[in-house]
């Protein structure tokens, strides 16, 4: 276990850090110790735009997945009464997770395209006259795909936390005269915090590290940090890709570090 993680996790990261200081020519990379890559990175306005974009995606996706995920988990945990139904409905939510992400992205295209289902339906209902251009290959479609792919990472941990809430607490709250809304606000949400945190960690890191969804759903018109890296890679500019990767890694770790202060994952399993 430790060996595998060392070889394929720690090793690569060290390698990236080392290579991020190397120099590059058109065709090859050579060992060096220079800050050129970082200077270039911090000197370019593209970097800031792209990092801003990444945070924007992460924030919007987080808010949406949290809302949807919490509602779904709440429904499963508190409104569905029998365990059998809970398991069955829960599985319905989980199964797509085990299928291919790429296929799930592709499948939005006939839906959102210029002549796609969404546009034709809206036109036939008379809601719009012209097909909407911003449905596909835009920020909208990128975030839609993120929400589609990653809401599950919110549902599962929140559901897990909710199932551990002692039902008598809720009864107690009701007996004490709390309204449904007050119970939710003062009893359920605080007790779900660990689940929410774990979901948050998953969603933010997945979105921040993603490059393929952005590339695919935006038709290469939008960028985030992951795409910056993958572009450099395809140009064989490994050192500058590595430098970007180091910055991304640092950002992600800071975010997680902040989140981990709020919850102890190991206790919550």
């Amino acid at each position: 276990m430790a060996l595998i993680l060392l070889a394929f996790l720690v090793g690569p990261i060290i390698m990236i850090v080392i290579v991020s200081f190397w120099g590059a020519t058109e065709y090859s990379i050579y060992p060096a110790f220079q800050f050129d890559n970082y200077e270039f990175l911090f000197g370019s306005s593209v970097t800031y735009t792209v990092f801003f974009n990444t945070f924007k995606y992460a924030a919007i996706t987080w808010a949406l997945t949290l809302t949807i995920g919490f509602t779904v988990a709440y429904f499963l945990a508190f409104e569905v009464r029998t365990l059998k139904w809970q398991i069955a409905l829960f599985l319905i939510c989980t199964i797509p997770f085990w299928t291919s992400n790429i296929i799930r992205m592709i499948s939005w295209i006939p839906f959102l395209g210029r002549n796609g289902l969404a546009n034709t339906t809206l036109i036939s209902w008379g809601v719009i006259d012209e097909p909407l251009e911003w449905l596909l290959f835009s920020d909208f479609s990128v975030i839609l795909a993120f929400v589609h792919l990653y809401t599950l990472f919110m549902v599962v941990p929140i559901f897990n936390s909710m199932m551990r809430i002692d039902r008598s607490l809720i009864e107690a709250a009701r007996d004490g005269g709390a309204s449904g809304w007050q119970t939710l606000r003062h009893v359920i949400i605080p007790l779900c915090k660990p689940g929410i945190m774990i979901g948050t960690i998953f969603v933010t890191t997945l979105v921040m590290g993603d490059f393929i969804t952005v590339r695919f759903m935006s038709g290469s018109q939008r960028a985030n940090v992951g795409r910056l890296i993958s572009n450099d890679i395809s140009l064989l500019q490994y050192p500058s890709a590595s430098a970007t990767a180091v910055i991304l890694l640092a950002t992600v770790l800071i975010v997680i570090g902040l989140l981990l202060r709020l919850v102890d994952i190991r206790k919550e399993l």
């Binding site: 276990m1 430790a2 993680l5 394929f8 996790l9 720690v10 090793g11 690569p12 990261i13 060290i14 390698m15 990236i16 290579v19 960690i201 998953f202 890191t205 921040m208 590290g209 993603d210 490059f211 992951g226 890296i229 993958s230 890679i233 490994y238 890709a241 590595s242 990767a245 991304l248 890694l249 992600v252 770790l253 997680i256 994952i265 190991r266």
Partner: peptide, 24 residues
């Protein structure tokens, strides 16, 4: 340490693993 390593492995952007292993 190993536990945090495992968590880190889960949350680290996957393209970094790809890039690093490729480079090595």
């Amino acid at each position: 340490v190993l536990f945090y390593l495992a968590i880190a492995s889960l949350v680290i952007p996957s393209i970094l693993i790809s890039l690093g292993v490729g480079l090595i």
